[in-house]
Simulated scan of single mutants.
Amino acid sequence: MSFDTERFISEIQNRPCIWNMSSEEYSNRVLKQSNWNEVAEIIYDDWQNLEENTKQKRIKDLQKKWKGLRDYHTREKNKDSSVKSGSGATKKRKTPYLDMLQFLNVSRASNQTSGNISAETSSDSSAILDENDHCVSRRPKKMTVFQEALINSMEKKEKTIQI
């Protein structure tokens, strides 16, 4: 019996509590386990005849397979965002199941964070407002010599471009 990956992905997609981190149900462990049992029952024809420890092992196998598919989706999306355009671009290769995994983009988009910049009030002219209207300094408190030189260089270029 070969594993039907397309059916597996489809069954996971129908159960957002397994994959959608923005769903309230995502943190409900009992519901999630129940949904994994449903998926296993659909995927494995002999599910009803299996012993409990075998069922648990197969559920763990399905969860590992899902993690692999989810990680694959993330890696391919990261490759897409880092592909260079123009003459240096390589021909895009066919990626199996990637189209079927597009529903994961909804989950990723709703969970993106704005970074680890701490909001702090500053009278420095290089302060900006973040998306929550907090004053955030553009420059860290302590910079390396390299960082200082880089910023100074960029500021000089910016001034010469404006002139």
Rank of each mutant, 00 (worst) to 15 (best):
V136F: 03
C135E: 08
Q147N: 06
S107D: 14
S2I: 05
Y97K: 03
E148F: 04
W36N: 05
S81N: 12
N37F: 01
T121E: 11
L31N: 07
K159P: 00
E131M: 08
S82C: 07
S137P: 05
I128Q: 07
I9S: 06
T160R: 11
M154S: 09
W66F: 14
E52I: 06
T5Y: 04
P96G: 01
V30A: 13
K79V: 13
S27C: 06
E120I: 14
K55G: 03
L62H: 04
K142C: 05
P16I: 00
N111T: 14
Y44W: 13
C17Q: 08
T54L: 08
S82L: 13
W36G: 02
K32C: 09
S27D: 07
S153M: 08
T74F: 10
E131V: 12
E76W: 04
K156V: 14
R29M: 01
S2E: 14
S110G: 08
R108M: 03
P16R: 07
K65E: 11
K156A: 15
S10V: 00
K65R: 15
K57A: 13
N20F: 08
S85W: 11
R7D: 08
E51W: 01
C135P: 00
S27I: 04
S107F: 01
E76F: 03
E155M: 09
L104M: 13
Y26T: 01
T160H: 06
E6M: 05
E76V: 13
Q56S: 13
C17H: 00
T54F: 02
L62G: 06
I42K: 14
A109E: 11
E52A: 07
S137E: 01
D124C: 15
M143H: 06
M154E: 11
R70N: 15
Y26P: 05
S107A: 14
A89C: 07
Y97G: 05
S118F: 06
T74L: 13
M21I: 02
S122H: 06
Q112H: 10
Q63Y: 04
L101N: 03
N14T: 03
W36M: 04
E155I: 12
I128A: 09
A40G: 15
D45L: 11
S22K: 10
N116T: 11
S123I: 09
A127D: 01
W19R: 04
M143D: 01
D80T: 06
A40I: 00
I18M: 02
S87L: 15
N37G: 02
V145C: 05
E51Y: 10
N105E: 15
Y44M: 05
E158I: 12
K84H: 02
D71V: 04
Y97L: 10
D133P: 00
T74E: 13
K77V: 10
V106Y: 09
D80V: 05
W19S: 03
